[in-house]
Protein backbone atom coordinates (compact mmCIF):
# COMPACT_ATOMS: atom_id res chain seq x y z
CA UNK A 1 0.00 0.00 0.00
CA UNK A 2 1.06 3.50 -0.67
CA UNK A 3 -0.85 5.40 1.92
CA UNK A 4 1.00 8.65 1.63
CA UNK A 5 1.45 10.54 4.80
CA UNK A 6 0.57 14.20 4.73
CA UNK A 7 3.76 16.16 4.32
CA UNK A 8 2.27 19.44 5.33
CA UNK A 9 2.11 19.57 9.12
CA UNK A 10 -0.50 22.31 9.08
CA UNK A 11 -2.66 20.29 6.79
CA UNK A 12 -2.12 17.12 8.75
CA UNK A 13 -3.39 18.77 11.86
CA UNK A 14 -6.40 20.07 10.02
CA UNK A 15 -7.26 16.66 8.74
CA UNK A 16 -6.82 15.19 12.15
CA UNK A 17 -8.95 17.86 13.76
CA UNK A 18 -11.82 17.51 11.47
CA UNK A 19 -11.61 13.95 10.35
CA UNK A 20 -11.95 13.09 6.71
CA UNK A 21 -15.61 12.25 6.82
CA UNK A 22 -17.44 15.25 8.13
CA UNK A 23 -20.31 16.04 5.82
CA UNK A 24 -21.28 19.14 7.72
CA UNK A 25 -18.03 20.94 7.56
CA UNK A 26 -17.64 23.97 9.73
CA UNK A 27 -19.08 27.05 7.97
CA UNK A 28 -16.62 28.57 5.47
CA UNK A 29 -14.08 25.84 5.85
CA UNK A 30 -15.46 23.59 3.13
CA UNK A 31 -13.64 23.81 -0.19
CA UNK A 32 -16.92 23.35 -1.95
CA UNK A 33 -20.38 22.55 -0.79
CA UNK A 34 -23.52 21.73 -2.64
CA UNK A 35 -26.94 22.16 -1.13
CA UNK A 36 -30.07 20.47 -2.41
CA UNK A 37 -28.81 20.29 -5.96
CA UNK A 38 -31.23 19.16 -8.63
CA UNK A 39 -30.71 19.19 -12.36
CA UNK A 40 -33.81 18.65 -14.36
CA UNK A 41 -33.68 17.92 -18.06
CA UNK A 42 -37.03 17.29 -19.64
CA UNK A 43 -39.10 15.36 -17.16
CA UNK A 44 -36.35 13.51 -15.40
CA UNK A 45 -34.10 14.58 -12.60
CA UNK A 46 -30.57 13.86 -13.73
CA UNK A 47 -29.37 15.00 -10.35
CA UNK A 48 -31.91 14.74 -7.58
CA UNK A 49 -31.56 16.70 -4.39
CA UNK A 50 -27.89 16.09 -3.73
CA UNK A 51 -26.03 17.81 -0.92
CA UNK A 52 -22.37 17.25 -0.35
CA UNK A 53 -19.22 18.88 0.86
CA UNK A 54 -15.62 18.68 -0.27
CA UNK A 55 -12.72 19.63 1.97
CA UNK A 56 -9.32 21.05 1.27
CA UNK A 57 -6.67 18.39 1.30
CA UNK A 58 -9.11 15.67 0.48
CA UNK A 59 -9.61 13.41 -2.53
CA UNK A 60 -13.34 12.85 -2.87
CA UNK A 61 -14.53 10.11 -5.19
CA UNK A 62 -17.88 10.08 -6.93
CA UNK A 63 -18.91 6.56 -7.83
CA UNK A 64 -22.04 5.05 -9.27
CA UNK A 65 -23.34 3.16 -12.28
CA UNK A 66 -23.78 4.64 -15.73
CA UNK A 67 -26.51 7.24 -15.84
CA UNK A 68 -26.28 7.94 -12.12
CA UNK A 69 -25.65 11.62 -12.85
CA UNK A 70 -21.98 11.68 -11.87
CA UNK A 71 -20.73 13.81 -14.77
CA UNK A 72 -23.70 16.15 -14.54
CA UNK A 73 -23.12 16.61 -10.83
CA UNK A 74 -19.44 17.31 -11.46
CA UNK A 75 -20.26 19.92 -14.09
CA UNK A 76 -22.68 21.64 -11.73
CA UNK A 77 -20.06 21.64 -9.01
CA UNK A 78 -17.51 23.09 -11.44
CA UNK A 79 -19.92 25.82 -12.47
CA UNK A 80 -20.26 24.62 -16.05
CA UNK A 81 -23.93 23.83 -15.69
CA UNK A 82 -26.57 25.71 -13.78
CA UNK A 83 -28.56 23.58 -11.35
CA UNK A 84 -32.33 23.68 -11.60
CA UNK A 85 -32.49 23.89 -7.83
CA UNK A 86 -29.97 24.37 -5.09
CA UNK A 87 -26.66 26.12 -5.06
CA UNK A 88 -22.96 25.51 -4.97
CA UNK A 89 -20.50 27.43 -2.84
CA UNK A 90 -16.80 27.46 -3.41
CA UNK A 91 -14.83 28.38 -0.34
CA UNK A 92 -17.94 30.01 1.01
CA UNK A 93 -18.73 32.05 -2.11
CA UNK A 94 -21.81 31.41 -4.21
CA UNK A 95 -20.50 29.98 -7.45
CA UNK A 96 -23.13 31.70 -9.57
CA UNK A 97 -22.04 35.09 -8.31
CA UNK A 98 -18.38 34.39 -8.93
CA UNK A 99 -16.91 36.07 -12.04
CA UNK A 100 -15.70 33.51 -14.51
CA UNK A 101 -12.15 34.84 -14.26
CA UNK A 102 -12.07 34.32 -10.50
CA UNK A 103 -13.68 30.94 -10.89
CA UNK A 104 -11.08 29.83 -13.38
CA UNK A 105 -8.29 30.72 -10.96
CA UNK A 106 -9.92 28.76 -8.15
CA UNK A 107 -11.40 25.79 -9.96
CA UNK A 108 -9.91 23.47 -12.49
CA UNK A 109 -12.04 21.05 -14.43
CA UNK A 110 -10.86 18.07 -16.43
CA UNK A 111 -13.34 16.66 -18.94
CA UNK A 112 -13.30 13.04 -20.01
CA UNK A 113 -11.89 13.92 -23.40
CA UNK A 114 -10.82 17.05 -25.18
CA UNK A 115 -12.03 17.95 -28.62
CA UNK A 116 -9.93 17.79 -31.75
CA UNK A 117 -7.88 20.94 -32.03
CA UNK A 118 -4.48 21.76 -33.45
CA UNK A 119 -2.63 22.79 -30.31
CA UNK A 120 0.46 21.02 -29.05
CA UNK A 121 0.49 19.36 -25.66
CA UNK A 122 2.58 22.17 -24.16
CA UNK A 123 0.33 24.84 -25.67
CA UNK A 124 -2.68 23.09 -24.22
CA UNK A 125 -1.10 22.78 -20.77
CA UNK A 126 -0.02 26.42 -20.90
CA UNK A 127 -3.65 27.36 -21.39
CA UNK A 128 -4.01 26.31 -17.78
CA UNK A 129 -1.98 29.43 -17.03
CA UNK A 130 -4.28 31.81 -18.97
CA UNK A 131 -6.46 32.51 -15.92
CA UNK A 132 -3.41 33.86 -14.14
CA UNK A 133 -2.28 36.12 -16.98
CA UNK A 134 -3.39 39.62 -17.75
CA UNK A 135 -5.03 40.26 -21.07
CA UNK A 136 -1.88 41.01 -23.05
CA UNK A 137 0.50 39.11 -20.87
CA UNK A 138 2.37 36.32 -22.55
CA UNK A 139 3.23 33.23 -20.52
CA UNK A 140 6.40 33.84 -18.56
CA UNK A 141 9.22 31.43 -17.99
CA UNK A 142 7.63 30.68 -14.64
CA UNK A 143 4.45 29.67 -16.38
CA UNK A 144 6.33 27.42 -18.75
CA UNK A 145 8.15 25.89 -15.80
CA UNK A 146 4.89 25.24 -14.02
CA UNK A 147 3.48 23.67 -17.15
CA UNK A 148 6.50 21.47 -17.77
CA UNK A 149 6.56 20.39 -14.16
CA UNK A 150 2.88 19.44 -14.34
CA UNK A 151 3.57 17.51 -17.51
CA UNK A 152 6.44 15.71 -15.90
CA UNK A 153 4.23 14.72 -13.00
CA UNK A 154 1.73 13.22 -15.41
CA UNK A 155 4.53 11.66 -17.46
CA UNK A 156 3.68 13.59 -20.64
CA UNK A 157 6.60 16.01 -20.80
CA UNK A 158 8.02 14.02 -23.69
CA UNK A 159 4.93 14.92 -25.76
CA UNK A 160 5.21 18.68 -25.31
CA UNK A 161 5.85 19.44 -28.97
CA UNK A 162 3.30 16.93 -30.25
CA UNK A 163 -0.11 17.96 -31.46
CA UNK A 164 -2.69 16.80 -28.97
CA UNK A 165 -4.82 15.22 -31.68
CA UNK A 166 -1.94 12.91 -32.59
CA UNK A 167 -1.77 11.52 -29.05
CA UNK A 168 -3.58 8.41 -27.88
CA UNK A 169 -6.64 8.70 -25.66
CA UNK A 170 -4.72 7.91 -22.52
CA UNK A 171 -1.93 10.33 -23.34
CA UNK A 172 -4.46 13.03 -24.05
CA UNK A 173 -6.17 12.40 -20.75
CA UNK A 174 -2.86 12.82 -18.94
CA UNK A 175 -2.19 16.08 -20.81
CA UNK A 176 -5.54 17.38 -19.61
CA UNK A 177 -4.69 16.37 -16.06
CA UNK A 178 -1.38 18.18 -16.42
CA UNK A 179 -3.24 21.30 -17.54
CA UNK A 180 -5.47 21.09 -14.48
CA UNK A 181 -2.38 20.85 -12.28
CA UNK A 182 -0.80 23.80 -14.07
CA UNK A 183 -3.96 25.80 -13.46
CA UNK A 184 -3.08 25.63 -9.74
CA UNK A 185 -6.65 25.94 -8.57
CA UNK A 186 -7.80 25.32 -5.04
CA UNK A 187 -10.46 22.92 -6.17
CA UNK A 188 -10.02 20.31 -8.86
CA UNK A 189 -12.91 18.52 -10.54
CA UNK A 190 -11.87 15.53 -12.59
CA UNK A 191 -14.19 13.45 -14.74
CA UNK A 192 -13.07 9.83 -15.06
CA UNK A 193 -9.38 10.69 -15.09
CA UNK A 194 -8.10 7.15 -15.45
CA UNK A 195 -10.64 5.49 -17.72
CA UNK A 196 -8.34 5.19 -20.70
CA UNK A 197 -5.04 4.98 -18.87
CA UNK A 198 -2.91 1.88 -18.61
CA UNK A 199 -2.54 0.43 -15.13
CA UNK A 200 0.77 2.09 -14.44
CA UNK A 201 -0.53 5.50 -15.34
CA UNK A 202 -3.79 4.86 -13.47
CA UNK A 203 -1.78 4.44 -10.30
CA UNK A 204 0.47 7.36 -11.18
CA UNK A 205 -2.36 9.75 -12.03
CA UNK A 206 -4.39 9.04 -8.90
CA UNK A 207 -1.30 9.25 -6.75
CA UNK A 208 -0.48 12.64 -8.23
CA UNK A 209 -4.01 13.85 -7.57
CA UNK A 210 -3.83 12.58 -4.03
CA UNK A 211 -0.44 14.23 -3.54
CA UNK A 212 -1.85 17.42 -4.94
CA UNK A 213 -4.61 17.30 -2.35
CA UNK A 214 -2.25 16.58 0.49
CA UNK A 215 0.69 18.76 -0.47
CA UNK A 216 -1.07 21.81 -1.79
CA UNK A 217 -4.16 21.39 0.29
CA UNK A 218 -6.32 21.25 -2.77
CA UNK A 219 -9.77 19.76 -2.77
CA UNK A 220 -9.92 17.10 -5.47
CA UNK A 221 -13.17 15.60 -6.59
CA UNK A 222 -12.99 12.75 -9.11
CA UNK A 223 -15.59 10.67 -10.86
CA UNK A 224 -14.29 7.11 -10.82
CA UNK A 225 -15.53 3.81 -12.14
CA UNK A 226 -12.94 1.50 -10.69
CA UNK A 227 -14.13 0.71 -7.16
CA UNK A 228 -10.75 -0.68 -6.15
CA UNK A 229 -9.00 2.50 -7.22
CA UNK A 230 -11.66 4.60 -5.52
CA UNK A 231 -11.27 2.62 -2.33
CA UNK A 232 -7.54 2.81 -2.47
CA UNK A 233 -7.02 6.51 -3.14
CA UNK A 234 -10.13 8.38 -2.04
CA UNK A 235 -10.46 9.80 1.41
CA UNK A 236 -14.19 9.73 0.99
CA UNK A 237 -16.55 8.54 -1.69
CA UNK A 238 -20.04 9.61 -2.68
CA UNK A 239 -22.24 6.89 -4.12
CA UNK A 240 -24.81 8.07 -6.64
CA UNK A 241 -27.62 6.15 -8.25
CA UNK A 242 -30.36 7.50 -10.49
CA UNK A 243 -29.42 11.05 -9.66
CA UNK A 244 -29.68 10.66 -5.92
CA UNK A 245 -27.02 10.26 -3.31
CA UNK A 246 -27.19 6.78 -1.79
CA UNK A 247 -24.37 7.07 0.68
CA UNK A 248 -21.29 9.05 1.51
CA UNK A 249 -18.32 8.35 3.72
CA UNK A 250 -15.09 6.42 3.96
CA UNK A 251 -14.69 3.98 1.11
CA UNK A 252 -14.69 1.06 3.49
CA UNK A 253 -18.11 2.05 4.79
CA UNK A 254 -19.71 2.90 1.47
CA UNK A 255 -18.43 0.10 -0.71
CA UNK A 256 -20.03 -3.02 0.69
CA UNK A 257 -21.12 -6.26 -0.91
CA UNK A 258 -24.77 -5.31 -0.44
CA UNK A 259 -24.33 -1.86 -1.99
CA UNK A 260 -22.42 -3.22 -4.93
CA UNK A 261 -25.18 -5.73 -5.54
CA UNK A 262 -28.01 -3.22 -5.05
CA UNK A 263 -26.59 -0.25 -6.86
CA UNK A 264 -24.36 -1.77 -9.51
CA UNK A 265 -26.16 -5.10 -9.91
CA UNK A 266 -22.95 -7.01 -9.47
CA UNK A 267 -22.19 -9.83 -7.10
CA UNK A 268 -18.85 -9.06 -5.50
CA UNK A 269 -16.64 -10.05 -2.64
CA UNK A 270 -15.48 -7.05 -0.63
CA UNK A 271 -12.53 -7.64 1.62
CA UNK A 272 -11.52 -5.19 4.30
CA UNK A 273 -7.89 -4.28 4.35
CA UNK A 274 -6.57 -4.26 7.84
CA UNK A 275 -3.78 -1.78 7.43
CA UNK A 276 -5.48 0.84 5.30
CA UNK A 277 -8.82 2.52 5.28
CA UNK A 278 -9.53 0.60 2.10
CA UNK A 279 -11.22 -2.45 0.83
CA UNK A 280 -10.63 -4.63 -2.17
CA UNK A 281 -13.49 -5.57 -4.42
CA UNK A 282 -13.46 -8.84 -6.31
CA UNK A 283 -16.13 -8.72 -8.97
CA UNK A 284 -17.81 -12.08 -9.51
CA UNK A 285 -20.73 -11.74 -11.91
CA UNK A 286 -23.79 -9.63 -12.67
CA UNK A 287 -26.22 -10.37 -9.93
CA UNK A 288 -29.29 -10.73 -12.16
Amino acid sequence: MTATLPRNPLLASRLTDRGPSSISAVGGAAAFSAKDLSVRIGNSNIVDDVSLVGNFGELLGIIGPNGAGKTTLLKVLAGLLKPSLGCVEIDGVDLEKMPSSTRSRQLAYVPQITGAHPFTALELVLMGRYPHLRRFQIESEDDTEIAIEAMERMDVAQFKGRRVDTLSGGERQRVLLARALAQRGDVLFVDEPITSLDIKHQLLALQVLKDEARDRSVAVCAVLHDLNMAARFCDRVVLLAEGGMIDEGEPGCVITERRVAEVFGVRARVTRRARSNGVTVDLIEPSD
Binding site: G79, Y109, T114, G115, P118, F119, L124, M127, Y130, Q183
Partner: peptide
Protein backbone atom coordinates in the same frame (compact mmCIF):
# COMPACT_ATOMS: atom_id res chain seq x y z
CA UNK B 1 -6.54 40.70 -31.21
CA UNK B 2 -7.59 41.63 -27.68
CA UNK B 3 -9.86 38.59 -27.63
CA UNK B 4 -7.37 36.30 -29.32
CA UNK B 5 -6.44 34.28 -26.24
CA UNK B 6 -10.08 33.60 -25.51
CA UNK B 7 -10.51 32.42 -29.10
CA UNK B 8 -7.89 29.78 -28.33
CA UNK B 9 -10.00 28.55 -25.43
CA UNK B 10 -13.13 28.53 -27.56
CA UNK B 11 -11.45 25.96 -29.77
CA UNK B 12 -11.20 23.53 -26.88
CA UNK B 13 -14.93 23.22 -26.40
CA UNK B 14 -17.51 25.00 -24.26
CA UNK B 15 -16.80 23.21 -20.98
CA UNK B 16 -13.06 23.58 -21.10
CA UNK B 17 -13.34 27.18 -22.26
CA UNK B 18 -15.67 27.94 -19.38
CA UNK B 19 -13.45 26.22 -16.87
CA UNK B 20 -10.50 28.21 -18.14
CA UNK B 21 -12.22 31.45 -17.46
CA UNK B 22 -14.36 32.74 -20.29
CA UNK B 23 -18.06 33.36 -20.22
Amino acid sequence: VVASRDLNLLLLGDDEARSLGIN
